[in-house]
Structures are given as structure tokens and as C-alpha cells.
């Protein structure tokens, strides 16, 4: 009986998880195309700040959970070592989703660029070893800028 429940959960996790993942990736790709016009860049401290009138902090965050199938394959991979593709795709979904949410918030405000984006990842797993959960929080934050400042006319050499 217990084996049946286990297999049932495994299959449910595999199919439902895969479906959710495919949908999520489709949504991410579509929204990434929609927001592609607003560039996200990291500028160095030595570079001049781009001209802008307004700047505002934007944060995008998402908590994403793995399914039962990923959890089991993850545990197995923990024995033999090596990459865990299930978790890799989970992290990728989380990161791209967090960046998108940040960008969407910035675009709603009217940003023309998002600068100095930083990312943070935190594991929300319980400290109890076999609580049977795997979830991570990913946040992306950056500064949206808007409002072009009229360029200063450089002083002419020839008077």
C-alpha cells in the first residue's frame, strides 16, 4: 500500500510538475520578448551614471517549489553525485521569473532602463532533514530610471 502511494505521488509529481514547468517556461519566454525593449544592465562604479531624471528601486521575487519527482531524483543524485537537471531547471525558472517581475514593475512605472541588478537566492527548506520539501526564494532587484535629461551642449572650442 505504501509503495502504491509512493508511486502515485511520484507519477503525479512527474506529470503535473512537467506540465507546470512547460507552461511556466512558455510564459517566461513570452514575457521576456514583451519586455525585451527595456535593457537590464550592470554599470561599473567608474562609469558615469546614465542621464535620467528619476530613479527608483524595484524588487522582483518568487518562491518556487519542486515537485515530488524532482525531490526523489534529487535525493538519488545526492547518492551518486553529478548534476541534478530537475533542480537546475527549477532554479532557472525562479531566476528568470524574478528578473521578469522586477522588469515588469519597472516598466509599469515607466522605466527606460534597469541598472545594477543584483540577485539573491535563499533556501526555504526546513531544517528537519526529511520534511519532504524543496523550495527556494529568488529575488532580483535593481534601479529603474526614467526621464531623459537634455544633454548639455559641450563648450565650443572655436569661439
Amino acid at each position: 500500500m505504501e509503495v502504491l502511494i509512493f508511486l502515485g505521488l511520484l507519477l503525479l509529481g512527474f506529470f503535473a510538475g512537467r506540465r507546470a514547468e512547460q507552461r511556466h517556461f512558455a510564459s517566461i519566454q513570452q514575457r521576456e520578448r514583451q519586455t525585451a525593449a527595456v535593457p537590464v544592465l550592470n554599470v561599473r562604479a567608474s562609469q558615469d551614471l546614465p542621464p535620467a531624471e528619476y530613479a527608483c528601486l524595484f524588487v522582483g521575487s518568487v518562491v518556487i517549489a519542486g515537485d515530488y519527482y524532482k525531490l526523489i531524483t534529487g535525493l538519488l543524485a545526492g547518492v551518486v553525485g553529478g548534476a541534478i537537471p530537475g533542480y537546475e531547471s527549477l532554479m532557472e525558472r525562479g531566476r528568470r521569473e524574478a528578473i521578469l517581475r522586477m522588469k515588469e514593475a519597472a516598466i509599469a512605472w515607466g522605466a527606460t532602463q534597469v541598472l545594477n541588478v543584483r540577485m539573491e537566492t535563499a533556501s526555504l527548506n526546513s531544517n528537519q532533514s526529511n520534511s519532504g520539501t524543496f523550495s527556494v526564494e529568488v529575488i532580483a532587484y535593481g534601479t529603474g530610471i526614467k526621464g531623459a535629461v537634455p544633454a548639455r551642449i559641450p563648450p565650443s572650442i572655436h569661439q
Binding site: L12, S61, V62, S131
Partner: peptide
């Protein structure tokens, strides 16, 4: 969240909590 861990996906409650 424990239930959601079977099928996977976003944990909206936690996202909001942390926000």
C-alpha cells in the same frame, strides 16, 4: 506549501509573505 511540493510550482503564499 507541503501539498504544493508534490506537484511543484510557485508558492504564492510564501512569495507574498516574504515580499
Amino acid at each position: 506549501a507541503g501539498l504544493k511540493n508534490i506537484v511543484g510550482g510557485e508558492l504564492t503564499e510564501y512569495t507574498e509573505l516574504l515580499q
